[in-house]
Structures are given as structure tokens and as C-alpha cells.
Design a protein around this nucleic acid. Structure first.
Length: 481
RNA sequence: GGCCCCGUCGCCAAGUGGUAAGGCAGAGGUCUGCAACACCUUUAUCAGCAGUUCGAAUCUGCUCGGGGCCUCCA
């Protein structure tokens, strides 16, 4: 089975064949660093984190570039509001971004370039486009003439006439055509600027990605990703710039992730349903968020809600409980030399799902099947005396962890994770862990005295508070209802 | 107005021509002093209508409903 990916350009799933066999160049639009990242950024970055991991898992030597756009109107405005320099502001939010991505458990891309490190290359592309007659200078600004690029709008599949009806020219812009967009903006007093053939100025939005991608991956590369909302104008303009300058196909496969809604509504600052990653992480475990995001296909919209997060937590808990149980059940057993094919079966299904446009929801379903098989084996009578079953559990255990790693899941020690989530859930209830321990001791005492009525009473009282007691060979434990 | 997407069990969510995965919740059962976990069993004909086809959730058309982009946005 070969990997197939949905290409926004063709609107179809296509067989993935990198330009150079076995090697992949992938560029994903990062963030403009002027504010904290929200759950939508979390999704986009987690999705491409998984794509990157899976490409490597599938033996593609992958170069992954994710940029920081650290010069932009929004940054300048925000910095002015706060009375600090754009650079200081950008630095602050680059640090915040790194912290957030780290908390979410993302692997580092191969390169994380910043727009301001590529000013020279940006100027070169500008010059090339001007030399080719595709771009023009106008009182210190440089604009891209969309009429000179026949393929314009091929990605977003729009039509020029319609677009022009809605296009606006901002005050002060010297465009020949309202659809033209800025490649370079002359610096106004107090704005950051770099010397250029057109005077001091700064890059427009879009051009930085053309510069960074071509510098690090070449003029043509395999995968370009980002959120759906970037299709127009951002990616459309990148194509115009890059293909206009190079005359070559810019990107082979365009991948776009779907949005995150909040309680069925579009997330927006005006509605007030806007959640930053750091706020969410105060309430939910990072891995629960990842599990939630991967429980839907990356192109579908996903609804961020308390119920959906709670379900994600239940699902993830099922994995950790199974892993914990399997480890406990096989502890201290001598491992005879018996082979197992259980793991290979799960892996085959997993690969099949992931090969179909990174279908993480289906891939997780197959891992759940592995969990059920593992639980069934572990609870088989005289399990520990049946080497072939022990071998199968060992195999499944290792396979689930190994495949989970491709999704960035099951990174924690099961016992620690379960304990952490349990204690975190406790803060919502009106009881402390110490109080629960106290009740458990009372109940133990009652049971020792064969006072089962009192014991059950304590169980009922705790259950009312949302605590369930678990009697095991090792003693009594508790969990959240 | 233009372009695009979606509508699958109570909830979440796979499934793009061959007869409906998985999770959560629910019901019954095994296990347990009780309980929980786990395991077993059980719950849908796919918004509606009309077509194409031997055969459709999957293709076409229409209707209804929801959403996105077209200005900054993952």
C-alpha cells in the first residue's frame, strides 16, 4: 500500500510520490508572532507534527520547515500599543510559541527560520519579479501584478472578475490593479525597515514564505501545509511569487487542515469564545488535547467542547489503563522464545489507515482493537502460565507504544498519567485525596470487623461525591466516577 | 452574488460502488462480599426526494438544514 494524500490543488486524493524518491521537503506556514497561540494553532501544528512523524515512520527522509513571521503590520501595531519594539514583541511570542508547542509534545521541525533572517532573499525575489515585469515599484512600495500571472487563483479556484468586485485599495496604496498585492512596503516613520533598491522598507505578507521555502527546500518541493484559511490569499500569493520568479512548479502537494469550532460556533475574538493553548492546558492534559484532535480526520472541522474533551480523556484513559494492566500482568514472567503476530496485524491496519491521507481517527480505532485484544488475553485464566499469550501481550504492548509514538501518544508512564489526571479531576470535586484516604481506612476497619453494611455505606457516600472505590489484591484504590 | 465543504446510532467519529469500523454513553451477562476495571452480547440502512447501476451512505440532479472562504486569521 502506498501513501495517498488529498491535494487541495487537484481537489483529489493522489498517490504521494516525492520529487526525489525517498526524500520529502515539507514547508508549513507557522505563526505571525504578535499574540499567544490558540486552539486552532494547536490543531494545525499537531496535524503537521503527525504528518512529519508519519512520513519518517514510512521511511521518507523528511526535511520539515516551519517558519516564524516576525515582521508584519499586526506586530508593528501591537508593539506600538505596548510601547516596545517589534523585535522585542516578536521575541516574546516566539518564546511563548516554543513553550506552547513543547507543552503539546511536538517534535522540532528540521528548520525554524524567521522572516527577518531572510530579508536579503526577499529583496532578491522582488528584484527578479520586477526584472521579469511581473512586479512593479510604486513610491517605495513593490506590488505584484496579478494580471501577469495567468495561473493566479488556480489553488483557490476563484475567478478574477468576482474577486475584483470585492477588492479594495487601502488608503495610500499605489496599485495599478486592486487585486495586486504588496511584496515590499516602504517604511513609514517609526516602522522597522531594511535598506533595499526601493528605499527603506519591509516585506509584505506572503513573500517571506516564498523566500524561506526556496532557501531551505529549493524552488520546488513536495508538501506545503497550513490551515484552510490560508488557501486564499496567502498560499495563492505564494504560488504567484514563487512560480513567477522561478518559472517552475512551486509545490507538488498542498495540504490544508480544517478549523476548530468552539461549541459549534466559529472561534473568534468578537464572539469571545477564544481559547489560548496555555489557558486550555491549565484545564486539560496536553495528551488529551492531542488525542481529541487526532480523533477526527485533519481536514474535517472539529468541535472543541467540554463533552468532547471529556470523551477524549476517557478514550485515552482506556489506553493507559490497558497498558498499566498489561505491564502488571506480565511482570516477572520468564519470557520463553515464542513468537507473536498480533502486533504485526495491528501495525498493518494502522499503516493502511495512515496511508489513506493520514486517517488518524481510523488508525486510533485499530489501536483500540489492539487494546481489546490485549485486555482479553491478560484476563484469560492462567494467563501467566501460557507463554504464547504472554508473547502476544508483550508484542501488542510494544506495538501500541511504538505506533502511538507516531501519533505522539502514550508518552507518559501509565501509572503517573492516570494519577495525574485523577488528581486534576479531583479539584472539581469537593473533597481532597487525604479525605478519601481517611474514608478508605475507616472502611477497611469496618470490613475487618465484618461490618459490611458500614463499608458499603462509605462506598455509597463517596460515590455520591463522585469517587469510586476499587478493591484489589493489593488494597483499596479509588478513581473518579 | 462567486467558490468550496458538510449532514452516518443518544453523543463523538471512520467508511467514495458490493451490502454500515471504533470510542463514549445505555441495556443484559461473566467476574466481584458489594462495587469498579476488564471481557462477552446487544443498539443505525446512512437529512429527504428522484435518477444511474446487477448492486449506492458512497455517482448524478433537486429539496431541506448547517458551515467555511471571498478583509486579518491555523
Amino acid at each position: 500500500m502506498t501513501l495517498r494524500v488529498y491535494n487541495t490543488m487537484s481537489g483529489k486524493k493522489e498517490e504521494f510520490q516525492p520529487r526525489v524518491p525517498g526524500k520529502v521537503g515539507m514547508y508549513v506556514c507557522g505563526v505571525t508572532v504578535y499574540d499567544y497561540c490558540h486552539i486552532g494553532h494547536a490543531r494545525a501544528n499537531i496535524v503537521f507534527d503527525i504528518i512529519y512523524r508519519y512520513l519518517q515512520f514510512a521511511d521518507f527522509e523528511t526535511t520539515y520547515v516551519r517558519n516564524y513571521t516576525d515582521v508584519d503590520d499586526k506586530i508593528i501595531n501591537r508593539a506600538n500599543e505596548r510601547g516596545i519594539s517589534s523585535q522585542e514583541l516578536a521575541e516574546e511570542f516566539i518564546t511563548a510559541f516554543d513553550e506552547d508547542m513543547d507543552s503539546l509534545g511536538l517534535v522540532k521541525p528540521t528548520h525554524e527560520p524567521r522572516a527577518t533572517e531572510y530579508i536579503q532573499q526577499i529583496i532578491e525575489i522582488n528584484q527578479k519579479l520586477i526584472d521579469k515585469g511581473i512586479a512593479y515599484e510604486s513610491s517605495g512600495d513593490v506590488y505584484y501584478s496579478v494580471a501577469k500571472f495567468p495561473d493566479y487563483l488556480k489553488l483557490s479556484k476563484r475567478n478574477m472578475e468576482e474577486m475584483q468586485a470585492g477588492a479594495r485599495v487601502a488608503p495610500g496604496e499605489q496599485k495599478r490593479n486592486p487585486m495586486d498585492f504588496a511584496l515590499w512596503k516602504a517604511a513609514k516613520p517609526g516602522e522597522p525597515g531594511w535598506e533595499s533598491p526601493w528605499g527603506a522598507g519591509r516585506p509584505g505578507w506572503h513573500i517571506e514564505c516564498s523566500a524561506m521555502s526556496s532557501s531551505l527546500l529549493g524552488e520546488s518541493f513536495d508538501i506545503h501545509g497550513g490551515g484552510r484559511d490560508l488557501i486564499f490569499p496567502h498560499h495563492e500569493n505564494e504560488i504567484a511569487q514563487s512560480e513567477g520568479a522561478s518559472g517552475k512548479q512551486f509545490v507538488k502537494y498542498w495540504l490544508h487542515n480544517g478549523f476548530v469550532n468552539v461549541d459549534q460556533e466559529k472561534m473568534s475574538k468578537s464572539v469571545g469564545n477564544f481559547f489560548t493553548i496555555r489557558d486550555i492546558l491549565k484545564i486539560y492534559d496536553a495528551e488529551v488535547i492531542r488525542f481529541f484532535i487526532l480523533s477526527a480526520h485533519y481536514r474535517s472541522p472539529i468541535d472543541f467542547s467540554e463533552q468532547n474533551l471529556a470523551e477524549a480523556q476517557s478514550g485515552l484513559r482506556r489506553f493507559y489503563e490497558a497498558l498499566e494492566a498489561a505491564a502488571a500482568a506480565t511482570e516477572g514472567i520468564d519470557r520463553p522464545d515464542v513468537s507473536s503476530t498480533e502486533g504485526a496485524k495491528v501495525e498493518e491496519k494502522f499503516r493502511e489507515a495512515m496511508d489513506d491521507d493520514f486517517n488518524t481517527a481510523l488508525a486510533i480505532a485499530h489501536l483500540f482493537d489492539g487494546v481489546r485484544t490485549m485486555n482479553r488475553l491478560v484476563t484469560t485464566k492462567k494467563f501467566r502460565k501460557k507463554p504464547e499469550l504472554v508473547a502476544q501481550v508483550d508484542d501488542l504492548y510494544a506495538t501500541i507504544l511504538r505506533l502511538g509514538k507516531v501519533l505522539g501518544l502514550y508518552r507518559s508512564q501509565p501509572t503517573e498519567w492516570l494519577e495525574k489526571v485523577k488528581l486534576a479531576g479531583l479539584t472539581k470535586l469537593n473533597i481532597t485525596a487525604e479525605q478519601i484516604t481517611g474514608f478508605i481506612e475507616q472502611r477497611l476497619q469496618a470490613r475487618a470487623e465484618k461490618d459490611f453494611a458500614r463499608g458499603d455505606e462509605i462506598r455509597a457516600e463517596l460515590e455520591e461525591k463522585g469517587i469510586v472505590l476499587l478493591d484489589t489484591r493489593e488494597g483499596t484504590n479509588w478513581r473518579l466516577k
